[in-house]
Computed example of a mutant assay.
Amino acid sequence: MDLLALADFNLVARHEGFGRAARAAGRPKATLSRRVAELEGSLDLRLFERGGRNLKLTQEGRALYERTGALLTELDEAAAAIASGVDRPRGRLRVSAPLLFSQTAMGKLAAGFALKHPEVRLEVTTEDRTVDMVEEGYDLVIRVNPDPDESLVGRVFLRDRLVVVASPALARPQDGSTVPAVVRGAGDEIAAWGVTTPEGPSSIAIRAVLGLSSLVMVRDAVRAGVGAGRLPVSLVTHDLAAGRLVHWGEADVPEISLWTLYPSKRLLSARVSAFLDHLKEAFPKGTPEELAACIGA
């Protein structure tokens, strides 16, 4: 594929017309039109719908634009960095992060990154769903215990674990009776929580009295004494130290791992590398205690 023709195609697509693209780039309109036509011919695809006053991308043209635009931008930035002799992070960095991490820590982390790298425009979107990085234009995603994905590479930067906690006013049952519980979601199928204490493993029978979609809301409800809760250590460390909550045991569930993921087929940009380094500096050991310190700072 002709890389120059591909760059001209992206220029026309970005400006939504040959005339506007020609004026923006100071290039002849006829040259842009010819090079896009040559690209269409080499691909045997129509990339634009021509006619009327506006130029519209076809479905195939839209897919090509979305998949190649970021790559060409990275090539331009790499060339500019090499030419200037400085590989300094600059440009737009889009990150998708899960809800709880964003609510508790991302604001401080993003602010610190912005102060450190003023030439990078960081944009963070908060969502727990699995996003399509290429289609939706993300440079990096943060996910909790992600499923394996051959198209992505990444690393664990934080680990956490769940504990069962309650207000000091709520007594832990000793006779096997159920205890009121605040759960994330509906919790209809949960009858008991397995826990490990210094005395060994045991089980706490529960009845869900409140279902909430956010762990921050679960913590606040547990603080109020509505029921016991199963929460990350990082989220309740300060409450346990202050006596607002008491520890009933370590939850018998898999460890929580937070991963940074990015496409394996792309060169790692200076922006992404800088953000990964920033996370490493914030959490050098990747422990729940480090996250708790960040939350309570």
Rank of each mutant, 00 (worst) to 15 (best):
Y138I: 03
Y138H: 02
Y138F: 10
D139V: 07
D139K: 09
L140R: 04
V141H: 00
R143F: 06
V144T: 12
P146F: 04
P146N: 06
G154A: 06
G154L: 06
G154I: 09
R155S: 15
R155G: 14
F157P: 01
F157S: 08
L158M: 08
L158V: 01
D160S: 07
D160I: 05
V164K: 00
P168L: 03
P168N: 06
P168V: 00
A169P: 02
R172W: 13
R172T: 14
T178R: 08
P180S: 08
A181F: 09
A181M: 13
A181E: 04
V183C: 10
A186R: 14
G187I: 08
D188C: 02
E189R: 13
I190A: 06
I190Y: 02
A191W: 04
A191T: 13
P198C: 07
P198Y: 02
E199R: 13
E199N: 09
E199I: 04
E199C: 04
S203M: 14
S203C: 12
I204Y: 06
I204H: 05
A205T: 09
R207D: 14
R207T: 14
A208G: 08
A208N: 08
G211A: 10
G211Y: 06
L212S: 04
S214Q: 13
S214C: 07
L215N: 11
L215Q: 13
M217G: 11
M217S: 14
R219T: 01
D220H: 08
D220T: 08
A221R: 11
A221Q: 09
A224T: 11
G225W: 00
V226P: 00
V226M: 11
G227V: 10
A228M: 15
R230W: 02
R230A: 15
L235D: 01
L235P: 00
L235T: 00
V236D: 01
T237R: 12
A241E: 05
A242K: 01
G243W: 03
G243T: 01
R244W: 01
L245D: 05
V246W: 00
V246E: 12
H247I: 11
W248Y: 11
G249A: 05
E250P: 07
A251Q: 07
I256H: 02
L258M: 13
W259P: 15
T260W: 10
R266H: 11
L267S: 10
L267A: 13
L267Q: 09
L267F: 09
L268A: 08
L268E: 13
A270T: 15
A270I: 10
R271L: 05
R271T: 12
R271Y: 06
V272H: 05
S273K: 15
A274C: 09
D277M: 12
L279S: 11
K280A: 15
E281P: 05
